[in-house]
Structure formats: C-alpha cells, structure tokens
C-alpha cells in the first residue's frame, strides 16, 4: 500500500504498525519523534498503532542545537 513517508510516496507492505515501519525504514535514532496524519504518536503505541493507506507519516529527528 502507499503512504507518504517524510514527504515521499512509498509503497510499503500491508499490515504494518509504526514499529514495523520504523524497522522497515531502517531508522536508527531511538529518540525519533513520529507524526502520523499531523498528530504525535506515543512511543508506547508504536507496536499497536496501525499504518493505513494514504497515511502521512513523518519521522522527525529532534533539533537540539542552539
């Protein structure tokens, strides 16, 4: 199915959760911020939060410089 991941259309396997999507995308930052359709997703929800067709998902690395 198709999702918008960090602004790019991606074809991903069906039935993914946020957790499996992070693994699929090979995101290595353990402190990643995840946004799904404009809303922040709790880390504790990653393995239960499903990813749906046409979802807009952003993996955000926090900006901590000053």
């Amino acid at each position: 199915m198709m999702v918008h991941l960090n602004g790019i259309k991606e074809i991903i396997p069906e039935g993914m959760t946020i957790k499996t999507l992070i693994e699929w995308a090979k995101e290595g930052d353990p402190h990643l911020i995840v946004e799904q359709n404009g809303t922040y997703i709790y880390p504790s929800s990653y393995d239960t939060q499903s990813v749906f067709e046409n979802d807009v998902i952003e993996f955000i690395n926090p900006n901590l410089g000053g």
């Binding site: 290595g28 930052d29 410089g65």
Partner: peptide, 19 residues
C-alpha cells in the same frame, strides 16, 4: 500541555562533531 520530555526522550544519535 505536553512537556519537553513527553516529546523528546533523549539526545538522539551521538556525534563527535558539532552539527
């Protein structure tokens, strides 16, 4: 509201150089 640590849970991937 949420607090800073609700959202940012750690320093991310360490780096040897300044960003």
């Amino acid at each position: 509201t949420a607090c800073f640590e609700c959202i940012v849970r750690g320093p991310g991937i360490p780096s040897d150089t300044s960003p």
